[in-house]
Design a protein around this nucleic acid. Structure first.
Lengths: 133, 133
DNA sequence: CTGGACCTACTACATATCTAGTATATACTA
DNA sequence: TAGTATATACTAGATATGTAGTAGGTCCAG
């Protein structure tokens, strides 16, 4: 049953599903984050493959099947990021963050939000020190 | 000349080269971040392909060729992370960070370092507000 | 009830990725 | 210098990925 790792394209499909909730193939096709225009059947094929892999499921509807992601964002991306940090950043999350912030246009608002995330992680870290399972 | 995107395996090779500096095929093979054991010629083939793509270069040495990355870590990874954030995290760097911290065993030391990175980004952000080119 | 619009299932195929073998050159060792 | 260890170049093939076409079903407008 081990959920397989999504490819680039599959990740985009999941991204759409996570952002907008259960969607039809058509809706996904139109919302692909890279603007690239692909044939309808291309997206359909990919999503059918994803279903075989267990990445998505679907419910037959009147008009068209409605697909949904079977795992939450973090469940899929945490392992991927963990590997990325290990493989490409020599295991340093700080270095990864630096890359994440650098270059990409992170606005001031985002930075505040990011700081909030850090604070939260810090709190959990400190609590964890006490160590309840 | 447009440097192509490295694959998973290629990224690992680059990771080794960035972490340890110019290295032989043998050295890379032994330092691959995922512990997986591969034939010597497997790594060799991959690195030869990377040279064709312009991801690495090499200097013939007495014993064995010494390979080096042709681009710095950030040059390769920033675009990759930018795409990842857009494609999988709905464009939210904060969400990506949350994933980065969650699950992966980020120690307290790392957290401090991370905070330092954030502060720096903040400083640059604020300075940028004033707006010297 | 018929023609178009739209949907899914299935098939096909080019390219990339990962893997490793074979052949051959080179260098150190005894 | 003969033999072994090690390196590279080249080749090969299995699997994954991205792409799209064709066939056939369903539903609604006229």
């Amino acid at each position: 049953m081990a959920k397989q790792r999504p490819s680039e394209l599959e990740l985009q499909v999941l991204g759409v599903l996570w952002d907008r909730g259960p969607s039809t193939v058509r809706a996904v096709r139109e919302a692909m984050p890279d603007g690239k225009d692909r044939a309808y059947t291309t997206i359909l094929s990919v999503m059918q493959g994803m279903e075989r892999k267990g990445l998505v499921g679907h419910t037959p509807q009147r008009q068209a099947h409605v697909y949904h992601a079977t795992a939450r964002r973090e469940q899929v991306l945490e392992p991927m990021l963990r590997d990325l940090v290990r493989n490409a950043f020599g295991g340093s999350a700080a270095r990864a963050l630096q890359c994440l912030l650098g270059g990409s246009g992170v606005g001031a608002g985002e930075l505040d939000e990011i700081r909030r995330v850090i604070d939260e992680a810090d709190r959990e870290q400190t609590e964890g020190q006490g160590g309840q399972p």
